[in-house]
Structures are given as structure tokens and as C-alpha cells.
Design a protein around this nucleic acid. Structure first.
Length: 937
RNA sequence: GCGCGAGUGGCGGAAUUGGCAGACGCGCAGGAUUUAGGUUCCUGUGUCCUCGGACGUGUGGGUUCAAGUCCCACCUCGCGCACCA
């Protein structure tokens, strides 16, 4: 028996889908008109309409291609964009490729090929995979970060950053020329006070370079021998390993490029409030920025003042000892020659001299990995230096320790320890038998069992006694300032962004060095600076554990490229190019902007286009993309960097909004089951069979099921193109959208897809005769019931689309479709409404049916159906009647019946009355339109 | 350890405002079509039951006429942070 010739099945879908994809491409259906420039189109149906800018985090095109987990967000933005377009918006929905970066380079090294070649292949593969899914992108705006026309502007932004400084008074970045002018005029004094005119050229350049937002500095950085490059703090995990590849990372002092993101710490923090992001994500950024307010206080010692940072200056009188980080610069000077006579044994670490104890402890601390250190966090260790310091407020002499619970990299690397009011200090004081003095008292007496960290009143604190914590803080800061022993202070955990990488496949810096060794910015007209072709571009390889190795940028070997003769205004001279490249976060830090004006070649974007798509919508609005969907893994990487660049460009007047992404939605992950055999080896998930008793077998052998990521090594990869071939893209789209809430992670289940297939098949059958291919809908008025179902669906589906609840939208569409299945004939009005509502999710079948229904011009710009309130109200309502919380009967009554009438009807109901026999009705509650609740005894 | 989020049928999930728990789909069972299998279609499907009902949203308590939803305590899982002074 053969199937009906006109049944909607995979074969049919695979005939229909390419046809519509070709037509969308030929007609550029999803092009969005710009207000100005090459992409302006005043006659476009959506020109001048309210706009929406909807985009995904663009993919990194790897050799593995997309698996079914990747397109989840892409489909969601596509559905949302198509819905918005039908709802009347001018929708910008673009896609691009984040193509510079390590994986491609590593693959190129491994296969002896060129990264550019591999990148082009991977992008072609990704584009094909996305095209098959029926994405409605404005393909005119597509780019890869590796395109010279694109990275020309990445380099241009770097120059903007290099050529500006942060004016803390104005609280914004300004062109570096304005700083130079301030030095020249004497408005701003030079660091050593000499007049600007008396400084040498090199001296001046060093001062100016020290103010730039992009600067070269020699500082402790994260060196990852396994990757052959240094990394930013954001790329290192809490375990002290590389985020990519999980290699060990070591601290080494090296000369590297940094971007002054710390200048923006406060604004990056404050502007989070105006963003429509998940609160959890904002919290991650807040934690990463890590703002603390408090004070610096100076403790005098014979080795000089020790400055500490504290958030609790109110507890200064309770400081009974001090602790320095083992790496603190004053440790050596402070370490005494001999122990005091009465030194407790626990303080010496068993050593005869303080110097011996300090040296041993330092060696021990340095040998610990971050993981070990964190594992030991509860056990406080340290040694006494033999030195003492003087508490500025009460002149008390207190011992100074070194301990690894104080971190060199935070605050000043030194603390005053107040064991009574800090958990860590308390633990240390207990371990070392140090005095604990209460200086803040709460309402109830302190038990002394653990640190008291709540609010209270100052006690044992001289001039602070009786003040609340907040007042005491202010008072003591004023005292410190008055006596020159400290000041109020704010510190951040955020560090400057280490921006150079010792790899080949990245954007070259638009920087050369002259004979002074100082950096010189290339003029704009030299952009883009392209990578030289190199046969051997592989980084020097290191043992991942070799902490003593040092990075060597491969570009350093391109001698002809590195050494250039240029005329930068003072005659031809020889310069050396910067041989580091930018991290692969560079391109993604601004790409959203480029979508708004991808063809602009004389400036980064035309302000008319930028402000139309991304500008603030009103007073106080931070501006940015209207919806950005992506994974949560970029919380403190891409999303922080992009916000920073946006703010620099905003300060310099190149863009109109303070934030790049007004609304951000984190989609969940699609995960999958993987199976291992007895040996723990993964077996192909596709060939595993489930037995009736819930046991899973592979080739007859029992296997274990585990749940997790989709990946080659787990042998559980399912590709979207494979699914499309087997079921059709529309079925795939419907399935992914109906799996559950977009934000949730959920398991892939190939066998469940047939449900989505059946839905589309029934939809088709409601309109087209499977045997003849004839359209079977009729121009008959829908019944009141059908009208009600239809308008209920319209109201619900609209609301669901607007709030990205595609899963419940699909359920409502199925419900309406199932209703129509029972009708003969199906009224045209209902069929058309349903097809239009299905169009965002299953665009190919919708276009096909729309055309077969005799409508021309395509469905992309058809008005989305509007619900008519008239059809939503029902004539009668069925009230469930509860007696003491249990449903005992139902009564049907006119929808407009009054409360009394409903009450009377409920009490008169046979079942209700039977249940009330012998009971006293105490109370009857009528919830209009919902239910009746009777309280009886 | 601290912070955040989530626990609902065999499975994915719905109920977003305190108002009939389990929409929709998978799976499963029965039936129709078919030589058969598959496909497709129809019907049923929370658990228990003495067929009246009883029970049921991680556990225990509470508020309420009414609780998956609110409050308190706890358990489990996931995520983030993790000596940040």
C-alpha cells in the first residue's frame, strides 16, 4: 500500500522547504530597511515602522558543525522576529560568525593547513546548516570577524581606546589630545612637577602612555603554557586553569597590553540596573566587578607605614594583630632578627628565627595550588614576622603575621585583623591564641563562639563609643583624614583586561614601535592591518606544566612583515610591528553595532542607522539591542567586554546608547543521553535500544545511561541537517520550540519528534486533500464555537510569542488544529488564521499553504491575526461547586448572571443539595466566572 | 560555607494573578485501515478502589472557604561565588 500522493511527510517537506528558501533568498524577503545609507529603502513596507533588533550570540564556526542543541536560541529569535514582522515591526534579524580564535588555529596546525582556509570551509558549512533550517536573516548584513572589512573597524576601535584617557572628574573617556593640551597649558601638573616644556619627548610620551585606556605594562599575568599564550582573568577558572582546554595557568610577570576596564567599574556596575537581563546574570557581573567600600588606614612600623584596606573601619579599635600577604613588599623589612623572649610556639612555625619561619612559610604558600589553598581555607596557617605595628587610633602595639588567607592581589595585600567581628580573623586568632576584643555590641550579649558581624553600637572604642556602625564608619574616616592616617576608599575585584595573545589567528594590533621602543598608533588610513601569510604559524609549544616557559608570538617570525618602513608624518623611518594579536573576544565586543550598518566604510556606523536600531528609547533608557539570546557561559567574558567597549564608544561620541544589549535572555541547553558499556566506553547512542523493563542495550549487551552534553566524544551527536532530512525543517523547528521553556535545559529525544510531524501533517490535511491535492477549505462562516476557539487561540498565541513562550504557543496551535480536524468543511477564515499563526514557527509549510489557499505575495509581511473580544466571551459558564474544599457538583448558568443567581443555582443543584443534607450552610463564596465555594457544617 | 533557582504522571512539560492539578506532546493499551509490519486515523491513559468514592504537585507543619501557587522548617538536585578584608 502506498501513501497518499499529497500527504505532508518528510519527502513532501523536503520538496517544499528548499523552494521557499530559494524564494526568500531571491527576493531578499527578510531585508530590513535602514534609515540612511546603502541599505536605505524608503519604499519598503516596513520603512519608518517601529523597529526591533533581535539577535543571537553568533557562533564560532568549528569543524564539528552544529548539533541539535545549537539552533535552539537561533530558532527562538527567528520565530520571535517573524512574529514581530507580522505584527508590524521593522525587524533587524542578522547572523554572523565569530571566526578568529584558537580552535581553528589548533586544527590548522594539526592538519598543516591555513586557518583562513579552514575558517572559510567551516563558515560555509554553518551557513548551509542554518539555511536548511529556514532562518529569516537579513543576509546582506552577514559578516565574519575575520573579514578585513570587519576587523578594520575592530582595529579602529582599538585605536580609539589607545587614543583616549579616563577623566575621573568628568567620569568619562576623552581624546588623548585633550590630556596633552592640559599638560601643555599647565592646567594639569606633571607627575614630578616639572613644566611640560622641560620634559624630553620620551618623558612626555611615557606620561601620556601611562594614561591611555590601552597601555603596555609589565605586570603579573596569567601564563598558560598549554595554550602558548597569556590569558585574561576572565579566562581563568576559580581552579586556576584555562577556561578553554583546562590547562594549568601560572602567574608570571610579563610585558603585555592591557585595556583599562577598571576605569569603568562603577559605571559597569551602576548601568546593570537599567538592563532587562536575568537577575542571576547581573549578580554574576556584580560579583565579578566586586565593589567594596571602606577605608584605607595606615599602621606605623619601623619598616614604614603599612596601609590596609578595610570595609569595617568602625572596628579599628578591635584590631589585635595584622596580617600581610606572604608576597607583601614590606615583609622582609619587617621581619625581626630574633623572636621575642615570650613568643608562643605556635607563632614560630618551629623555626629558630623569624627569617627562617617567613622563608619557609613563603615557600610553602608558593608551592600550593589554588585548589589546595581553597581546600585548606578552613584551617588558618601563618607565621609571626617578629615585627609589630601601631594602631593609629589608640597607639596600641600589635603583632604582624604573614598568612595566605590574605591575598596579595586584593586591596593592599595587608589587613588589620579584628577577630571579634570577622570570621576569618576569628578563626586565625583562635588558632594562634591571639586576643579577641569586642568593639561592636548588639542588643543581646555576645557569646564569643563566633565572630559577631551584625549591626550594633561601638564599645571599647574611645571616641566612637555609642555610635551605630554606619555613623562610626563616617566618624573614624574623618578622624583618619584629619590625622593623615588614612582615607575613605572603594576597591574593586575587577582587574584591567589583558588584551594581547601570543597566537597567530587573531586581529593584528594597529601599533608599531619606533626606535625608542614606545608604541606608535598607525593612522586610520593604514587600516586594516592584515596578517602576513605564514607557512609556519604554529606557536612555540610548551609542556603544559612548565611554569618557567615564556610566550613567543609566532608573528615575531614573520620578519618581512614585522619590520616596516613608514612615513608617519616625519619622513620615512623603520618601525617594528606589534607581534601580539588580539584575543578572540575583540570582534564580539562590538559586532552588534556593525549589523546596523554593515556596508559603512568611511565610518564605523552612520549615526542615523545606529541610533535607529540601538539608540535609547527615551529618557533614562540605556539603549541597545532589543533582544539578545545566548548562553550564560559568557556572563563575565563577552558580555562584560562588549559593555565596556560600548561605553568607550559612547564617551567618545561614536554611538548613542550606553549599553549594547538592553534585553538579554539566556536559553537553556539541549542535552542528551549517552551510554557506556561495561568497560566504561561510550557506544553510539543512536544504536542503543530500550527494553521493556527500562534496561538499555547495545548489540544485545546491557549499557549504562548517563545524561549530559551533546558531543563527539560521548557518541550522542544528532545534527540538525540530519533531522531536517528525516523529518523536515518545520518539524524540527516545531519540536525544538515545543520541548519546554526556552530558559530551561532539556533532554533531546529523537523519537518524540513524530508528535510535531503529526501536527503539521494534520494541519496540512485540514486544508489539502491528501489523495487529490485539492484545497478543501470552504468559504463558509465559522460556527460560534469555532470562532471562539480561533480567537482564544489568537489571543493566547500572540501573548505567548511576545513573551517567548513558544512551547505553550505550539500547544494552543495544536488545540485549534485539533478542533478544525473535527469540522467538515474547514472554514477558510479559521484555516487562514491558523496558517498565519503557524508561520513564525513553521514558515515553509505556512508559505506553501498560504499560496495554495490562493493568497499571493508570501506570508512574511501578512498582518498577524488580532483577537476580537466579542468572540472570547461565552454565553454560559460552568461553575464547579465546592463544598468544604471538594468539588461536589457543577452548574451551568448564563455568563452575565448575578452573584445571587449563581448562588441560588449552586444550592439548587441536585448533587450539591444531596451533599448538604444534614449540614448547615455557613457561607457561600462566589468567585465571578470561576467557581462557587460552600462552607457547611 | 554563602547566594540564587528548581523539585508536578512512565517521560518532556502546562497551570505566570490563591480558584476544577496534569493543557499539549511522547510513550503505553485497545480498536479501525492494511496480506503483514510501518504509516495514518479513532478511543482510553495520575494512583488506589469494595465503583459510592478516597488519595495525589520533594518532606513536615501553618495561613485560607480554597494552596503546585503564600508563610515557616527540612531534604534533594542544578547553577554561581568561594578566605575579596
Amino acid at each position: 500500500m502506498t501513501e497518499p500522493a499529497h500527504r505532508y511527510d518528510a519527502k513532501m517537506a523536503n520538496r517544499i522547504e528548499p523552494r521557499w528558501q530559494e524564494r526568500w533568498e531571491a527576493e531578499q524577503t527578510f531585508r530590513a530597511p535602514n534609515p540612511a545609507g546603502a541599505l536605505a529603502e524608503p519604499d519598503h513596507p516596513r520603512a519608518g515602522a517601529p523597529k526591533k533588533f533581535v539577535m543571537d550570540m553568533f557562533p564560532y564556526p568549528s569543524g564539528a558543525g552544529l548539533h541539535v542543541g545549537h539552533p535552539l536560541g537561533y530558532i527562538a529569535t527567528d520565530v520571535y522576529s517573524r512574529y514581530l514582522r507580522m505584527a508590524g515591526y521593522n525587524v533587524l534579524h542578522p547572523m554572523g560568525f565569530d571566526a578568529f580564535g584558537l580552535p581553528t588555529e589548533q586544527y590548522a596546525v594539526a592538519t598543516g593547513r591555513q586557518p583562513a582556509e579552514i575558517t572559510a570551509e567551516n563558515i560555509a558549512r554553518y551557513k548551509e546548516q542554518l539555511r536548511v533550517l529556514g532562518m529569516g536573516y537579513d543576509t546582506r548584513r552577514e559578516f565574519a570577524t575575520t573579514d578585513p572589512e570587519f576587523f578594520k573597524w575592530t582595529q579602529w576601535i582599538f585605536l580609539q581606546i589607545f587614543n583616549s584617557w579616563y577623566d575621573t572628574d568628568a567620569d568619562r573617556a576623552r581624546p588623548i589630545g585633550e590630556l596633552i593640551a592640559a599638560f601643555e597649558s599647565g592646567e594639569r601638573p606633571t607627575p614630578d612637577g616639572r613644566p611640560w616644556a622641560e620634559l624630553s619627548d620620551v618623558e612626555r610620551r611615557r606620561i601620556v602612555d601611562g594614561h591611555r585606556l590601552a597601555y603596555v605594562t609589565e605586570a603579573p599575568v596569567n601564563w598558560c603554557p598549554g595554550l602558548g599564550t597569556v590569558l585574561s582573568n576572565e579566562e581563568v577558572t576559580a581552579e586556576g586553569r584555562s577556561e578553554r582546554g583546562n590547562f594549568p595557568v601560572y602567574t608570571r610577570t610579563l610585558k603585555q597590553w592591557m585595556l583599562r576596564i577598571t576605569a569603568y567599574a562603577d559605571r559597569l556596575l551602576a548601568d546593570l540596573d537599567g538592563l532587562d537581563w536575568f537577575e542571576s546574570l547581573k549578580t554574576m557581573q556584580r560579583n565579578w566587578i566586586g565593589k567594596s567600600t571602606g577605608a584605607y588606614a595606615d599602621f606605623a612600623t619601623y619598616a614604614g607605614d603599612i596601609r590596609v584596606f578595610t570595609t569595617r573601619p568602625d572596628t579599628l579599635f578591635g584590631a589585635t594583630y595584622m596580617v600581610l600577604a606572604p608576597e607583601h613588599p614590606l615583609v622582609d623589612a619587617l621581619t625581626a632578627e630574633t623572636w621575642p623572649a615570650d613568643v608562643p610556639a605556635a607563632w614560630t612555625g618551629g623555626h629558630d628565627t623569624p627569617a627562617g619561619a617567613v622563608a619557609a612559610y613563603r615557600a610553602e604558600a608558593a608551592a600550593k595550588t589554588d585548589v589546595e589553598r581553597q581546600a585548606d581555607a578552613k584551617v588558618k596557617t601563618g607565621v609571626f614576622t617578629g615585627g609589630y605595628a601601631t594602631n593609629p587610633v589608640n597607639g596600641e602595639t600589635i603583632p604582624v603575621f604573614i598568612a595566605d588567607y590574605v591575598l596579595a592581589g586584593y586591596g593592599t595585600g595587608a589587613i588589620m585583623a579584628v577577630p571579634a567581628h570577622d570570621e576569618r580573623d576569628f578563626a586565625f586568632a583562635k588558632a594562634f591564641g591571639l586576643p579577641i576584643r569586642q568593639v561592636i555590641a548588639g542588643a543581646t550579649p555576645w557569646d564569643g563562639e563566633s565572630a559577631y558581624t551584625s549591626d550594633g553600637e561601638a564599645v571599647n572604642s574611645g571616641f566612637l563609643d555609642g555610635l551605630r556602625v554606619l555613623e562610626a564608619k563616617e566618624r573614624v574616616i574623618a578622624w583618619l583624614v584629619e590625622h593623615g592616617r588614612g582615607e575613605g576608599a572603594t576597591t574593586f575585584r575587577l582587574r584591567d583586561w589583558l588584551f594581547s595573545r601570543q597566537r597567530y589567528w587573531g586581529e593584528p594590533f594597529p601599533i608599531v614601535y619606533d626606535q625608542t621602543g614606545l608604541p606608535v598608533a598607525l593612522p586610520e588610513e593604514h587600516l586594516p592591518v592584515e596578517l602576513p601569510h605564514m607557512e609556519d604559524f604554529s606557536p612555540k609549544t610548551f609542556d603544559p606544566e612548565d611554569a618557567d616557559s615564556a610566550p613567543e608570538p609566532p608573528l615575531g617570525r614573520a620578519k618581512d612583515w614585522v619590520e616596516v618602513e613608514l612615513d608617519l608624518g616625519d619622513g620615512p623611518k623603520t618601525y617594528h610591528r606589534e607581534v601580539n594579536t588580539m584575543p578572540n573576544w575583540a570582534g564580539s565586543s562590538w559586532y552588534e553595532l556593525r549589523y546596523t550598518d554593515p556596508r559603512s566604510d568611511d565610518r564605523i556606523v552612520d549615526p542615523a542607522n545606529e541610533s535607529y536600531w540601538m539608540g535609547p528609547s527615551g529618557e533614562g533608557d540605556v539603549g541597545g539591542v532589543d533582544l539578545y539570546i545566548g548562553g550564560v557561559e559568557h556572563a563575565v567574558l563577552h558580555l562584560l567586554y562588549a559593555r565596556f567597549w560600548q561605553k568607550v564608544l559612547f564617551d567618545l561620541g561614536h554611538v548613542s546608547s550606553r549599553e549594547p544589549f538592553r534585553r538579554l535572555f539566556n536559553q537553556g541547553y539541549i542535552q542528551a543521553y549517552a551510554y557506556t558499556d561495561d568497560r566504561g566506553v561510550y557506544v553510539p547512542a543512536e544504536e542503543v535500544e530500550e527494553q521493556a523493563d527500562g534496561v538499555f542495550t547495545y548489540q544485545g549487551q546491557k549499557v549504562n545511561r548517563e545524561y549530559g552534553k551533546i558531543g563527539k566524544s560521548l557518541k550522542n551527536v544528532v545534527t540538525p541537517d540530519g533531522i531536517c532530512a528525516e523529518y523536515g525543517a518545520d518539524t524540527f523547528r516545531v519540536y525544538e520550540m515545543s520541548m519546554g521553556p526556552l530558559a530551561d535545559s532539556k533532554p533531546w529525544e529523537t523519537r518524540a519528534i513524530v508528535g510535531s510531524q503529526r501536527f503539521l501533517q494534520r494541519l496540512w490535511r485540514n486544508i489539502v486533500d491528501e489523495e487529490t491535492g485539492e484545497v478543501t477549505v470552504a468559504d463558509v462562516p465559522p460556527s460560534p464555537e469555532t470562532l471562539r476557539e480561533m480567537h482564544k487561540a489568537i489571543a493566547g498565541v500572540r501573548d505567548d510569542y511576545e513573551h517567548l513562550r513558544m512551547n505553550t504557543a505550539v500547544a494552543k496551535l495544536i488545540t485549534l488544529n485539533n478542533h478544525l480536524t473535527g469540522l467538515d468543511p474547514v472554514p477558510r477564515e479559521a484555516a487562514e488564521a491558523l496558517v498565519a499563526m503557524v508561520a513564525p514557527i513553521a514558515p515553509h509549510i505556512a508559505e506553501e499553504l498560504w499560496e495554495r489557499l490562493g493568497r499571493t505575495g508570501g506570508i512574511a509581511y501578512v498582518d498577524f491575526p488580532e483577537a476580537d473580544e466579542r468572540y472570547l466571551v461565552e454565553d454560559t459558564v460552568t461553575y464547579p461547586v465546592q463544598i468544604n474544599g471538594k468539588v461536589r457538583g457543577r452548574v451551568e448558568i448564563a455568563a452575565d448572571a448575578g452573584e445571587e443567581a449563581v448562588k441560588a443555582a449552586a444550592l439548587a443543584d441536585e448533587k450539591v443539595a444531596a451533599n448538604l443534607v444534614g449540614k448547615d450552610v455557613k457561607k457561600v463564596i462566589v468567585v465571578a466566572g470561576k467557581m462557587v465555594s460552600i462552607v457547611a457544617k
